[in-house]
Design a protein around this nucleic acid. Sequence first.
RNA 1: GGGGCUGUGGUGUAGCACGGUUAACACACCUGUCUGUCACACAGGAGAUCGCGGGUUCAAGUCCCGUCAGCCCCGCCA
Length: 588
Amino acid sequence: MGDWKRTCYCAELEEKDVGKRVTLMGWVNRERDHGGLTFIDLRDRSGIVQLVFGPDIDPHAHEKAKKVRSEYVIAVRGEVKRRPLGTENPALKTGNIEIWCYEIKVLNVAQTPPFPISDDEEVDENVRLKYRYLDLRRPKMQRNIILRHKAALWVRNFLSSQGFLEIETPFLTKSTPEGARDYLVPSRVNPGCFYALPQSPQLFKQIFMISGFDRYFQIVRCFRDEDLRADRQPEFTQIDMEMSFPTEEDIFDISERMITGLFKELLDVDIDRPFPRVSYREAMLKYGSDKPDTRFGLEISDITNVFKDTKIKVFRDVVEKGGSIRAIKVPQGQKLSRKDLDELVEVARSFGAKGLAWFAFTSDGIKSPLAKFLSEGEINALRELLSIENGDILLVGADENEEVLAEYMGRVRLSLPARLGINLQGYKFLWIVDFPLLQWNEEENRYEAVHHPFTSPKEEDIPLLDTDPLKVRARAYDMVLNGIELGGGSIRIHSSELQSKVFKLLNIGEEEAKEKFGFLLEALSYGAPPHGGIAFGFDRLVMLLAGEDSIRDVIAFPKTQKAVCLMTGAPSPVTAKQLKELHIEVKL
RNA sequence: GGGGCUGUGGUGUAGCACGGUUAACACACCUGUCUGUCACACAGGAGAUCGCGGGUUCAAGUCCCGUCAGCCCCGCCA
């Protein structure tokens, strides 16, 4: 660069800078050579500004500019000029000005990139990820990554202003039972022993509370060796928080202020608070999901009572076995074609339904394969219960298994907006509360924690731990946005006796508990304050802020579905020497 | 572990259901002309054996089997 020094970013320049002499550095976004006059769009992270070269400005610089190609890195010296009348470009932030360049230096040449550096064309993700450094030059990715930075910065400032301290926790830590599969790291100095990368800093943050730091947070990487999805990859970032002496309300309050503040700051969107709260039970009934998308209605209703004495055999069987019948009323159901209805049945089937009935209410009566079995009384009862009008279609599921029924009705519900042409927009937040503490794991024949083993039961439900553990409700909560789980947390157990009891219920034996969590149990016995917290999926949060459908678009170097980094080629085999040092033998 | 979609010059696609000369189009790229363009324009040019392997056939981008990769989903994700 010699003694050249950049004076500003390209898109910072505006009309008031006209007359200034500037030195700019950046990438050639595009070159337009008109023979007697050459234009270059110079790009840096701020945006684009037009450079002008010509024989009347500087013939030598003009000759050099003609030889420049896309993505060359150049430096120019020139004067900011008002564009001649009629040649302004309103599509550019800097469209009223241009730089008349009298000097140009090529700082580096570039191969022709494998895909255009622009947002115009959808490039195969394969190629994008292999050349991620070029992909990240695209304006959209620059915006997303900068947005991510701003979000992290805002969160840090906010939480710090609320008295939270950011404290780091180890990445090389202890493998714990329960939860996701761990990523393991072999220990060279302790042959045969392994660290685990943290699935979350859960235990450390609880220990910070015991240590008296009162309020902790961390924007921290977490690792879970499970299969990937559009909103899930094996290493991801959490906004992890914990506080001492909180009630649920304190956690809701701080979380809502953080999230709404973030949306205001970054998107200038106002979100009402407090967020609605829905119990897990109600969510499963009305939406068939513990992370409901409430941007549209089409709620699920229980209509079991209508069919107490029905002639429809499949319904009667279900009712007799103590099961339920539930329905989604689709107003203006004629938008659903026969093909749609067939596909909805398939959706239900793929999630465990034996079938899905439908009743079309029309002015000529009921249209349905089951129409002739429906009694007048049942029809009237349905009309009244669900305020049905002619034109509505009722989608009806019946199952003796409540969970299966909820699940497939929820899946059917989620597939409806696309079929009905309902446009999903806006930001619908809610809290899901009153989760059960435990669920039964059929395969392992034991209870397991719905949230995690450190979650406190509701005080009034503690006696149920001995009599009916599945009825125990947890002091746990999830924040949901548009059908995506944004974050979750709980008030923790702070008594070592209660913690031991829960471990026992989870079939974690005394020995194992001591070996795996002994330090926690011991710590809890040294004056642990009541404490609780929450953690937010930062990648998902930024994804939603950016309006993207995949967290890969807000992570600089994401992994593919096979957990591979296409740019570096990780993971890859290592040398025999490395393995030997780690006392590891590989068998394939 | 399972289901689905995709794979054709550098990029994005067409062609494939119905097998048949030199695989088409746009953009990008290269050369040239051009003093107000900004998706510059115009003229010319180079570039793909169709993800990979096998099979059927006189003949395969097209049909069949397998395989690899990417994506979406189920399982899994305290």
